[in-house]
Amino acid sequence: MICRIADTPIDMDELTDSLDSPELGGLCTFVGKVRNHSAGQGVTHLEYHAYPEMAEKKMRQVAGEIEERFGVTHLAMAHRVGTLAIGDIAVGIAAASAHRDAAFKACRYAIDRIKQIVPIWKKEYGEDGVAWVEGCAVDAETAEPQKAQNQRV
């Protein structure tokens, strides 16, 4: 299983090839790309930062949750760090299972959960200045997300 913080471009073929097995009939992928706008403002580029050791550990936790919920064990996830241009792949996920339903569910769960509990931060550079995009503050007591406000810098 691939759970990786990467400082080089994400290769989706590598992720899907890692799940190549004759019993797997459904393969679902999600590609998160850098877009040129955010909250009505133009975006020129992004920086992603991570706490790499904890991030990979939390990705493995997400994988464990997916196995428990959907019985899917064939997963590959990679998240970029560093400076990314518009159109670059920020995150890639692949999930495979015998049939499509579990693969779709696993893929959807993985991206939503990564955004909640994996310590990765996005700094947005745009027409309107620079801001840390703060999606989820993690509630320490429950280790679950709560809504956060963006911080301008």
Partner: peptide
């Protein structure tokens, strides 16, 4: 130990 500000991984 680490300080973890609100996270924003993934891509909407």
């Amino acid at each position: 130990l680490a300080l973890i500000p609100p996270i924003s991984g993934g891509c909407a």
